[in-house]
């Protein structure tokens, strides 16, 4: 394989010439160009995983032509990519039929499948209420981003599932809800009930802390302790909810502004102040 020395390389996407940087993935470049490539297991915050396979594209490198997951495939000089060829559409349709068979009631899967003309599946459904596509986003965000690792895959093959070890309440889950936020199908869910956050999917309950200003429960005690542990010691952690934090920031900003306006007034005179205020 030829050594690429320059950082910038040229690739072709759907017949269009495009510039890309070494180390970028096909998906990144194609999305920048405005190409419509669906993804389910992809999230910019974590490493590509290529589990859901709906982002398949066709690449031609030399004489070889193959379907690859664009989220994981690195660009190389002279790469020719088809994002919407017949082969790509057919492959995505098969993938969506399989996903539809697994999660027939998931709105996200159903909608995406419909976009590719898939309304029914030839494959059998195990559990009609299943909503997890096993993309592993929750697992990856929990371990790789937060460094908690409260959840993981268990078993394998058709028995593979995502969950807490031994299927019992987690001792390490901090209840931050990152798993809920990244889950593409809404399988992972949590409910805040008074001073308790119930991580329904993980069978774990956590105590919520009230905002020091407005008294609204806003984050779990464990989550705030986790953040405390990540911050340098001299940085104080205000146990304040995002809404109050924002209004405090606005307050500080407007105070700072009025000082600026007053100072300006001394030099620009009354007209200057009126002009500024009318802005």
């Amino acid at each position: 394989m030829a050594q690429i020395t320059a950082d910038s390389i040229n690739i072709t996407v759907d017949g269009e010439l495009a510039e890309a940087q070494v180390g970028e993935t096909v998906l990144t470049v194609c999305r920048r160009m405005g190409k419509d490539i669906p993804t389910l297991c992809h999230h910019e915050g974590v490493e590509p995983y290529a589990a859901c396979r709906v982002c398949l594209v066709e690449v031609t490198a030399g004489a070889r032509q193959e379907l690859v997951p664009s989220c994981q495939y690195p660009v190389s000089d002279g790469l020719v990519i088809q994002t919407d060829s017949q082969a790509v559409r057919d492959a995505r349709r098969v993938v969506l039929e399989l996903l539809l068979a697994r999660c027939p009631k998931s709105d996200v899967v159903v909608d995406l499948a419909r976009r590719y003309g898939v309304t029914e599946t030839p494959y059998p459904t195990d559990d009609p209420d299943e909503t997890c596509i096993l993309c592993g986003l929750c697992v990856r965000v929990c371990e790789d981003v937060l460094g908690v690792g409260a959840i993981g895959f268990a078993d394998r093959g058709i028995d593979r599932e995502v969950g807490v070890p031994f299927d019992e309440a987690s001792e390490v889950c901090i209840g931050c809800g990152a798993c809920v936020a990244v889950c593409p199908t809404g399988h992972v869910c949590s409910i805040d009930d008074g001073l308790v956050r119930r991580m329904e999917t993980w069978k774990t309950e956590l105590e919520l802390e009230e905002c020091e200003v407005c008294g609204r429960p806003f984050a779990t005690v464990k989550q705030l302790d986790h953040i405390r542990g990540l911050l340098p010691e001299h940085v104080p952690l205000n146990r304040i909810c995002p809404v109050c934090r924002r209004s405090q920031a606005v307050q500080r900003l407007s105070e700072a502004c009025s000082i600026v306006v007053d100072n300006l007034g001394a030099t620009a005179g009354q007209d200057g102040i009126e002009n500024l205020k009318s802005l």
């Binding site: 371990e143 690792g149 409260a150 959840i151 993981g152 268990a154 394998r156 070890p165």
Partner: peptide, 30 residues
């Protein structure tokens, strides 16, 4: 189970990963 939990305390590996391995390979039994 207690031993797996003890391992996570000894080395910096989440219990979820040990449990994943222990259930992935047939030769392991819980």
């Amino acid at each position: 189970r207690e031993v797996l939990k003890q391992i996570t305390r000894e080395i910096d590996v989440p219990l979820a990963r040990l449990y994943g391995l222990a259930t992935f390979y047939r030769s392991f039994t819980l």
